[in-house]
């Protein structure tokens, strides 16, 4: 309930940002829009194609398959990372040296650049020289992510879990730290079980940070590109070709700029739509009267 003060000079201060956003986002986006509605054979000659590319893309089985893989991947990593993050946060030391150490160790994966994460796992999992790959072979497990689709999936999921669970855990940890001690004491006096403490105190108090964690992980994983590209390159076959990998194949590999542009616009709108739904639900829930 902040008050508004009118001072029109304030708009001047926004101008530089506005200019920056124009160059970095709006102009490239308009280029994409241009490609999406036109056909071109090079030489900067464009022919109006209307909704043609969109229709083609909506009916493309290749796209449906990629979308299905994408949803499956995002669903699986959310189902693993969110509960795992909560469990990790619940078991972290609350204060002192060990708490700091835990925080530093957990922040490490988050600080590694995406392509490096991909490279690490690519090498780590290789059957010929990778530690994981060799170990699996030594244990007699038939593991090869370059030829077996299931192995490729498992590798990518474990990699994502390794990379991102700390984010969920850190958010939850911060949420847990903000619960006043009186709540835990009251629960002890009420002889509440550990599960009930989680169910009725911790989970409700975490609901805010959890929605943010889910939203962030959803958006991020739905757009995942670098790591699977480095590890599997979308293979074997098309087994790990997620939406953005498919998009890049289409645009750069095949140079189908029109369909790719239509595809990327739809991709963008889908993410925007889902984020908006999320935001609306979160705000509506807060409006229920949490003081």
């Amino acid at each position: 309930m902040k008050g508004k003060i009118d001072n029109n000079r304030a708009w001047l201060l926004v101008l530089p940002v506005l200019a920056l956003v124009m160059f970095s986002a709006v102009i490239p986006l308009m280029t994409v829009v241009n490609y999406a509605f036109n056909d071109t054979f090079g030489n900067n000659q464009f022919f109006w194609n209307g909704w043609g590319w969109f229709e083609e893309m909506l009916q493309s089985e290749r796209l449906h398959a990629a979308l299905g893989r994408q949803l499956l991947f995002t669903g699986i990593i959310l189902l693993i990372e969110i509960p795992l993050g909560i469990v990790v946060a619940l078991n972290m030391p609350k204060k002192g040296f060990w708490a700091s150490l835990c925080l530093i160790l957990m922040a490490l994966p988050l600080l590694i650049p995406f392509n490096v994460v991909g490279t690490i796992w690519q090498i780590f999992s290789r059957v010929d020289i990778g530690l994981l790959g060799r170990a699996m072979a030594a244990l007699g497990i038939d593991y090869n992510y370059t030829s077996d689709p299931l192995d490729a999936w498992v590798t990518l999921i474990i990699m994502d879990v390794w990379h991102w669970t700390s984010l969920v855990a850190l958010l939850c940890y911060a949420g847990l730290q903000s619960i006043p001690g009186a709540y835990y004491q009251a629960a002890r006096i009420d002889q509440s079980s550990r599960w009930n403490v989680f169910r009725y105190i911790e989970l409700p108090k975490l609901s805010g940070v959890l929605s943010i964690a889910i939203l962030l992980r959803f958006i991020d994983s739905f757009m995942i590109y670098t790591e699977p590209f480095v590890v599997t390159g979308g293979g074997p076959g098309n087994a790990t070709t997620f939406l953005s990998i498919d998009l890049v194949k289409m645009a750069i590999g095949q140079f189908d700029l029109g369909p790719a542009a239509a595809f990327s616009l739809m991709y963008f709108l889908v993410i925007l739509l889902i984020s908006w739904v999320f935001y609306t639900v979160m705000v509506a829930r807060d409006g229920e009267g949490e003081p």
């Binding site: 006043p180 009186a182 709540y183 004491q185 009251a186 006096i189 009725y200 105190i201 989970l203 409700p204 108090k205 949490e290």
Partner: peptide, 15 residues
């Protein structure tokens, strides 16, 4: 086997 009432209300919000 004691009960305690704290300075700030401690209630289970979802119940």
């Amino acid at each position: 086997n004691i009960a305690q009432v704290f300075q700030f209300p401690v209630v289970y919000d979802t119940m």
